[in-house]
Design a protein around this nucleic acid. Structure first.
Lengths: 165, 165
DNA sequence: CTATTGATGTTATAATATAACATTGAGATA
DNA sequence: TATCTCAATGTTATATTATAACATCAATAG
């Protein structure tokens, strides 16, 4: 059992937030999830998830491999892709299609069609869930198509980076 | 000058539509556009655009290169990517991020944040404009991010393919 | 005519991702 | 204990997607 942690608002990621809480929260969630589903949250999986949680910047598979190599771990492509597949399948990591990169999920558990805001300057990413974004694609589409999965990505610039220019 | 062609509804692409009209319409548009902007709609660019217009299936860059090779034309990667860049820049082709593939735009001219419905079975793609989709991301996002570009893709199954199962 | 420019052509390589198979280690079971 | 099984990890090779850098060519502006 862990202490209750205040809900964070996703779109605050571009501002300051308590990242230690954020990090610990996510770790706790994935541990709980894996325990419940009898899945192995192995050192390798933990390590990769840590890289992704460090800040809200997406990492490419080969960046992850570089980090693994620095840490003296195995670092051939399948290693990274397999771990990422696992983390994505369990809903703790998303792929950012527009960047060929991977980012830790900010709302694990909440059933989602995530939407991402990607800052083109700092490259950080914020994830919006449907309630915040007001986006719900499934409901807005024509009747001759049945949606199974959605990708929503917005490129732009975040307030912090805007302030710097 | 050309005869006025009836507006097509984008989401009818998964059903039957008059593809000759559709094709001719698009060709006319791009010719007009290039003439107006004093851009060269060269044989190579025309050929690639034709491949993309043939049906509403997205083509990968290397598929386009195969078609060029079959047609006895130059077919090294930069050829395809350059033409695709041109067609995308002018708004007549979009990239489908989830497929690493390219598709002819269905609403050239209409200022858009396109949304795509991609059938996982027949692999055809329909493009929705904001009015039809009811999607308008720019308006729904938090105030600490300024959207410059959006990617919206829906994977699923179209009526035609649904009917076959 | 020659200089510039945009388009195309060519060679090489970078970046991203997967297939196929080998090894290991931690339970389950005989 | 022995060994079976299975998921995870490790390894080798290769497929797929994309770009960098530079060469050529043809139209046209000066």
């Amino acid at each position: 059992m862990q202490k209750k942690i205040p809900t964070k608002e996703t779109f605050e990621f571009f501002k300051k937030h308590d990242h230690d809480v954020c990090f610990g929260d996510a770790m706790m969630e994935i541990e709980k999830h894996c325990h419940k589903k009898n899945l192995q949250f192995t050192p390798l999986r933990r390590r990769v998830f840590e890289y992704l949680l460090r800040d809200h910047k997406p990492l490419g598979a080969y960046e992850i491999l570089d980090l693994l190599r620095e840490d003296g771990l195995a670092s051939t492509p399948p290693i990274a892709y397999r771990v990422l597949d696992f983390l994505m399948k369990e809903g703790f990591v998303h792929k950012i299609q527009g960047l060929n990169a991977f980012v830790a999920c900010s709302h694990p558990g909440s059933s989602h069609s995530p939407a991402f805001m990607i800052c083109r300057k700092c490259e950080k990413v914020a994830e919006l869930d449907e309630k915040i974004s007001g986006i719900n694609l499934g409901k807005s589409i024509p009747s001759d198509f049945s949606v199974e999965e959605t990708v929503v990505e917005m490129r732009g610039i975040c307030t912090s980076c805007m302030a710097l220019s």
